[in-house]
Write a protein that binds this DNA or RNA. Structure first.
Lengths: 178, 178
DNA sequence: GGGCACATGTAAGCTGTTACATGATTAA
DNA sequence: TTAATCATGTAACAGCTTACATGTGCCC
């Protein structure tokens, strides 16, 4: 019962869309999956090395000296499908804001208000980001068959952020007064 | 720029409500903060040892031989306040379901439907759990000044789960048909 | 006496981050 | 030419989980 390496899913998934270098892979993950996923170089390169050794991906010479462009093999495509079908293992939640709110009786109301205001500002930034991604996605002719799936993840982010804005507004009134 | 040990906040916070043993501390965190926080024994005991060495908590003999009941000192109370006011550092998101949806073009629609159905079932379980916690909290006379803060965290969970149920329903239709 | 919940800890190991080291390519 | 970006990797470390080892107290 070995645990599934989540990073491998992200790496194989990205390469299923287009072959690319490790550097660009990480950049695409940051820019495109950024609102629900994250990888660091320290994860991406070892993962690429492992997947190459397992025959899931192959490296080709890139346009630049000493850059390697990775592509999925058939085995890699099969492995990706296998991993995608596995039910996500429930991750241990850790919400640092809710932790602070829970112990809020130890703080003056203004400190709570500050925490909530900061959070709301972050949410509004996120929402602006989603709007931008959505516009871009709806215009991008390359998205093709992926578009509906990508839009679904954007919707998830938007709905979550909107419901959290509602919660923040209500909670600020409840806990810190109008 | 040392990072804040989040576990310390949970430990100090729990002890600010009532002195208790490490074992019970972890149990309370699991049962009461479970929907937004998690600690393992391997975190709790070292954290207690460190906080004791720093003078934030003191140990008293418990009712049982070789059990130690920890209580906040004044320094610990001050440290807790300091930690609670720090803005939560944004954690790197990792949503395993959205990762699978994003690469959904690699899967047959039925596999997507399974993933979404499983997720919806989990959400409904969560909602039932929240309802139970809410009933319990509203009846508990011990909650006192904490009740409003604790209810706020329950509301956060409820709203989040409800908006995700909405998303799941919509997304299932969009991606897998009616 | 047997089983369960309470209770305390440690050690191995995995995941993931951060900082570092190095160099190529491109655009101003 | 110089700064930014592209590109690859490693090493140290922090954080956290899991499994293990050990023992107490209570109830049936």
């Amino acid at each position: 019962m070995t645990r599934v390496r989540q990073t491998d899913i992200a790496v194989l998934g990205a390469l299923s869309i287009e072959p690319m270098t490790g550097y660009r892979l990480r950049k695409e993950i940051t820019e495109t999956l950024g609102h629900f996923w994250h990888e660091s170089f320290g994860q991406v390169y070892p993962s690429l090395a492992r997947l190459e050794a397992e025959g899931c991906i192959v490296a080709m010479d890139g346009p630049k000296t000493s850059s390697r462009v990775f592509a999925l093999t058939e085995a890699g495509q099969a492995e990706l499908r296998r991993l995608l079908e596995l039910p996500p293992e429930p991750q241990q939640p850790r919400n640092a804001l809710l932790l602070r709110i829970f112990f809020g009786a130890n703080l003056p109301p203004e400190a709570i208000a500050d925490l909530l205001d900061d959070y709301e500002a972050q949410l509004r930034e996120k929402l602006a980001g989603f709007a931008a991604i959505r516009r871009q996605l709806e215009a991008d002719p390359l998205a093709g068959e992926h578009r509906r799936y990508w839009l679904a993840t954007v919707s998830a982010g938007e709905l979550a952020a909107l419901s959290q804005v509602e919660w923040v507004t209500r909670t600020r009134t409840d806990l810190c007064g109008p």
